[in-house]
C-alpha cells in the first residue's frame, strides 16, 4: 500500500512479529546480530538497535504490535541494513508533529520517532488514519 522513494535490490534476512514486550527484546537483539554480521562498528550497531527499539515500542504501545521486515541491500552505493515496521494501528494524524522533538501523544516523552531518525541514515514514514503506519529505516555499513 505504501511506496518508498528508494529503489534497491534487497535480500530478505528475516521477518518477525512484535506481539509482546519480550519480542521487542529478542528482535532488537537479532537486528544487532545482523548489523554485526554486516561488519558495522560497535557504535553503529548500538545506533540501529536503539532506533528499532524506539520504533518497536511505538508499535507495541499504539498499535498493539506489528510486523518487522529485515533486509540488506545496495542503496545509493552503500551496503544498507533495511528495517521496515508495519502496523495496523490507528495511524498518525499529523506526521510532522509526531516527528517533532519533545512531542508525545502517549505516555512517552517524545524521543521515540525523531530520536530514531537521528540514529539512522534514511528514515521514511507513511501513515493512514485507521489503517496503520509503516516506517522504513536504513543504516549504511
Amino acid at each position: 500500500m505504501l511506496e518508498f522513494t528508494y529503489k534497491a535490490h534487497c535480500d530478505l534476512l528475516g521477518k518477525f512479529k512484535i506481539d509482546t514486550e519480550y519480542d521487542i527484546v529478542t528482535v532488537r537483539q537479532t537486528i544487532r546480530q545482523y548489523a554485526k554480521d554486516m561488519g558495522m562498528g560497535i557504535v553503529d550497531q548500538t545506533r540501529i538497535t536503539t532506533a528499532v527499539s524506539e520504533l518497536f515500542r511505538n508499535m507495541y504501545n499504539y498499535a498493539g504490535g506489528g510486523e518487522v521486515l529485515i533486509e540488506r541491500g545496495e542503496v545509493e552505493n552503500h551496503h544498507a541494513l533495511i528495517v521496515t515496521c508495519t502496523d495496523q494501528g490507528p495511524g498518525i494524524e499529523d506526521i510532522e508533529l509526531a516527528m517533532t522533538d519533545g512531542y508525545t501523544s502517549g505516555q512517552g516523552m517524545g524521543y521515540g520517532l525523531p530520536g530514531a531518525k537521528r540514529l539512522v541514515d534514511r528514515f521514511e514514514i507513511q501513515s493512514k488514519l485507521k489503517e496503520g503506519t509503516t516506517v522504513r529505516m536504513m543504516k549504511w555499513k
Binding site: T46, T49, T50, S53, E54, R57, G108, Y111
Partner: peptide, 8 residues
C-alpha cells in the same frame, strides 16, 4: 549494550 529512551 543498549539504553533506549525508555530505559534512559
Amino acid at each position: 549494550e543498549m539504553v533506549d529512551s525508555f530505559i534512559g
